[in-house]
Simulated scan of single mutants.
Amino acid sequence: MHKPDNQRGMSLISLMVALAIGIFLLAGLFQVWYQTRLTFSSQGQLAQLEDNQRMALTMMANTVQTGGFYPVYLNYPASATPTYTPALFTAAGNMVSAQYLYGTHDSTTKADTLTVRFIADKTSADSTTLDCQGQSEPTGTLVTNTYKIDTTKNNVLACSTDGGNNYLPIIQGSLNSMVITYGVDTLGDGTALQYLTADNVQALSVWGRVLSVKIALTFNNPLFGQPGNAGQSATLPTITRVIAITHS
């Protein structure tokens, strides 16, 4: 009677080769997944950064354009003729009477501050004056918005509405520097002849001759030092915007 051959399975070497091939393929798939994840994460951070840059410049530009605004009817009492300088802008802090623009400059840290004042106006439910923190202000209120880099909260752009006592962040992006310069009409011909930093404007006492404000923001690069982003610089190119003063 013929005896069948003994059944044989895969050898240990064959199993090890198969496992090695499987691990190699899984490692390749993991690498693809990891790189895809890094790419999506980087794109998300860059998109958020662009939103932060756009929001920062937009909010600061809107504030500068509002600087010096006052509702005309509040400055026209029935028995008096309005003056060129609204009396509603009272002296406060570093500002004298009628002054609505002020700033500070630090050449070392490049962390300037910008303060803008205006008179709130609300003529209807759809026409409301908001401060830099998004709060509605009553008509006739002297509103003060102060911008600075808040070093206590990851260097975010922050704004105060109470004269610089309390600040709230208005964007999430981390700032490396904020330099504010002022276009000054030094000759009195209605043209901004030169741009000066706040300390020079203060020294010359020419805040009343400022015709425009130039904002320069330098953001920290969110991709710097992250895996898969070798060669990224610590900061991004400076973005600037020049805003004309529309009220006086």
Rank of each mutant, 00 (worst) to 15 (best):
Pro227Val: 09
Leu114Gly: 12
Asp150His: 13
Ser107Val: 00
Pro237Phe: 00
Val32Ile: 10
Gly28Thr: 06
Ser160Thr: 03
Ser233Phe: 07
Thr240Ala: 04
Tyr76Met: 15
Gln45Pro: 05
Glu50Cys: 02
Ser124Arg: 03
Val96Ile: 00
Thr139Gly: 13
Ile215Trp: 12
Met59Val: 09
Gln232Lys: 14
Gln226Cys: 02
Phe224Lys: 14
Thr139Leu: 11
Ser233Gly: 08
Thr63Val: 07
Thr104Phe: 05
Pro138Gly: 02
Thr90Trp: 01
Asn200Glu: 13
Thr186Phe: 07
Leu114Ala: 08
Tyr195Gln: 11
Tyr182Gly: 04
Ala203Arg: 14
Met60Trp: 04
Thr58Ile: 02
Thr83Gly: 15
Tyr70Asn: 05
Val116Trp: 10
Gly164Glu: 00
Gln135Asp: 10
Met1Leu: 12
Met178Arg: 11
Thr161Phe: 05
Thr235Cys: 07
Ala158Gln: 08
Lys110Gly: 03
Pro237Cys: 00
Lys214Asp: 00
Ile119Thr: 04
Phe30His: 06
Ala192Gln: 12
Ile239Tyr: 06
Thr85Phe: 13
Met1Trp: 09
Ser42Phe: 11
Tyr167Glu: 08
Ala18Phe: 13
Lys153Met: 04
Tyr34Cys: 01
Phe69Glu: 01
Met1Ser: 13
Leu196Ile: 06
Gly134Tyr: 11
Tyr84Trp: 10
Leu236Ser: 07
Gly22His: 02
Ile239Lys: 12
Pro237Ser: 00
Ala244Ile: 02
Arg54Pro: 07
Val143Thr: 05
Ala18Met: 15
Ala125Phe: 02
Leu211Tyr: 05
Thr238Met: 05
Thr58Phe: 15
Leu114Val: 11
Ser97Gly: 03
Asn221Ser: 07
Ile119Gly: 10
Asn94Gly: 11
Leu38Tyr: 03
Met178Ala: 07
Asp185His: 12
Ser14His: 07
Ala87Phe: 10
Val64Phe: 11
Phe69Cys: 00
Ser127Cys: 04
Asn94Ala: 13
Leu19Thr: 10
Thr181Cys: 03
Pro86Arg: 10
Gly173Cys: 04
Gly225Ile: 02
Gly228His: 13
Leu57Lys: 05
